[in-house]
Design a protein around this nucleic acid. Sequence first.
DNA 1: AAAACTTTTTAAAAGTTTTAAAAAGTTATT
DNA 2: AATAACTTTTTAAAACTTTTAAAAAGTTTT
Lengths: 389, 389
Amino acid sequence: MELKEKILTYLYYLKEQSIAGLSKSLAKSTPIVTKAINELLEQKIIVDKGLAASTGGRRAALYSLNENLDNFIVSVSIDQFYTSIYLSNLQQEILAEEVDIKLDLTDPTASANILKHLRIFIESHIDAKKVIGIGISMPGFVNSTTGLNNSYTEDNPLHYLKNTLETEFNIPTVIDNDSRCVAWAEKEFGSGINSTHTLVINLNWGVGLGIIINGEIFTGATGFAGEFSHIPLSNTNSLCSCGKRGCLEVEASLKSAIDQTEMSIQQGEYSIYSTLSKTMSNKSDALIEAAKIGDQLVIYHIGKIGYMIGKGISTLLHILNPNKIIISGRGAEIGNILMPQIQNAVNEFSIPRIAKMTKIEISNLHKTAQQKGTTALVVEHYINHILTN
Amino acid sequence: MELKEKILTYLYYLKEQSIAGLSKSLAKSTPIVTKAINELLEQKIIVDKGLAASTGGRRAALYSLNENLDNFIVSVSIDQFYTSIYLSNLQQEILAEEVDIKLDLTDPTASANILKHLRIFIESHIDAKKVIGIGISMPGFVNSTTGLNNSYTEDNPLHYLKNTLETEFNIPTVIDNDSRCVAWAEKEFGSGINSTHTLVINLNWGVGLGIIINGEIFTGATGFAGEFSHIPLSNTNSLCSCGKRGCLEVEASLKSAIDQTEMSIQQGEYSIYSTLSKTMSNKSDALIEAAKIGDQLVIYHIGKIGYMIGKGISTLLHILNPNKIIISGRGAEIGNILMPQIQNAVNEFSIPRIAKMTKIEISNLHKTAQQKGTTALVVEHYINHILTN
DNA sequence: AAAACTTTTTAAAAGTTTTAAAAAGTTATT
DNA sequence: AATAACTTTTTAAAACTTTTAAAAAGTTTT
């Protein structure tokens, strides 16, 4: 990435910055940053925002992206059952959204449905020429370089989703795994900001992991790092969707809490969940709502997944010794219920000396994490487009 | 590290190299490498070794460290029960050694004993002024920056072993964790040479892990990454030395194979191990020897630790997605017995798509890994000493 | 044996960083 | 309240590195 692109990316994240600040963040010398800033001012891509508050010496001149630039980002956040589409500007503001479109990824029409909704969304909100890129985040073995989702075979349109959207709209498109996008959001906008070694657990229908090492997303040798959900940690030998037994996912995801709750209800136990799940379209939302109301059964089962997440966290702690572990994704909303059980398991399964090195936190981004990360994905890839036209 | 030091380090590892090769490896331009090489030639620190075999064009001039330099390295490889001391030169040759000194680290005199043996060793083999550094590798939470071993409390001399040796001999001294040194050896001298993401399992009395990410040792946020042996993976709830239950180490180390074998023998089963363990001073060696002879009981118990190591490897595969996992340390000698069971467990507990991305190999460095890594540790830290005098 | 191709090495130009000095503030002292 | 001392940013010059181009030294093909 060229220097100007890096500057613009920083200005996107930080909103305003001085030459000295940029120089330090980018590890580039002041003269060269100054030159780039002056050219960007000339091109009216950035604007002067006056002087910063003093920190004890000469006040620094601040610069930010020009708000009048006609450049926008479309992001598509996909999970197992719901898809959301957002239009945002370079000031991190959401200008339009269509959230929680019911869309089951196992349905053969899923790809066509995404396309349909996105077409209507774009047509009704924005001139496609003003969109610098479309970002997609979805579960699975997504290779962001090839743009392919290897969790689906080649006969499934979802395998090629990125290419399909890109050719359909003729807008640069980028795709990545949902948990990596969530991790990126936590790193840039959440409590991962000052942490170089961060693990982000994306608790949702499944349980994903985004790994940040040395301030960068870690993808492993072939892009498959972070497959947390299928490590052999469970004692019950229930069969996982992946075909193996003993996977963490079976006992540590929102799905498993829902399954367990529904099973208990069938066995005659009372829970407000049985009412809520009929009125709310999203089972996860019903579970979370029930927990917030204080439903005992749901809280019990959420506690159980918390304990298993904690056991998984113990493994991660010992192997990776991170500064911080952030519980993010939809499940972050019930963080207060999860946390005590997570802590219990960590105490039980970790060496205290190691466990105390790592802060375990609940995300403060909640639902917005995936959207923020997916949008940032576009900025990271296509910010140069605001330079070239 | 300054350019000249980097060049010398490379020449230590690779023995001879061209300017073009160094330039590429170091990511530094040819002119600047040329200048440094000429200065080093001038100083007689390196020598011209003639031309390389042609690769299709002009033959490259090769350079290597001057063999007449009077610089040597002392390395001390410590494990739970045995310590070995080596003297080596800058051509990677061992000039003197005292191996397998029986020395139990739990013994309060351990530190004094190491000091005593090392004093006699140095006095009888080398002029201390010619030693560029002493390297120590030992088990435990070693912080190589502070030089402290945090596995021992401050009232234990082993906590300060590095400082003790350094002041005693007045030779620059560096210490690191044994598994990290083994991993470094595999990276530089073993089959990890061309792998950027490598995990090295140091199978010994315990079971350690060295993590290499992007070609560098990964230490985590606070230096404690790789605590593989205490992840909660065991089904039997036996108590571990760390105080927790269910640690991998309890079922996946040479100690556990020895314990199990001895227990079986006590229960009346036959094994050549009972004879060997009386004649050989080192139980691990007795176990390995018995396995090589083909002793059924020992092979059975080694197979069991192999299976558990494989289960641990499955966890690592999913989380870190490395190019390669190398089984190293003393246990590498029985790699052929371990391997089928490791593979069994990997097949059982891993997603095939992920498992097939990673090669699992037995080290070809065997016993020498720790010595090579510990010596390289000195080169990495103190090679500059051959420049300054 | 000459031409075409490869790779290393040298030389010049372009670019970047480092260092030093100047400018613009803030805080402490008289 | 004015001055001195201190901080931090910005500008300017010098030092250093890399990039690019050309030359040199081989090897392989025709």
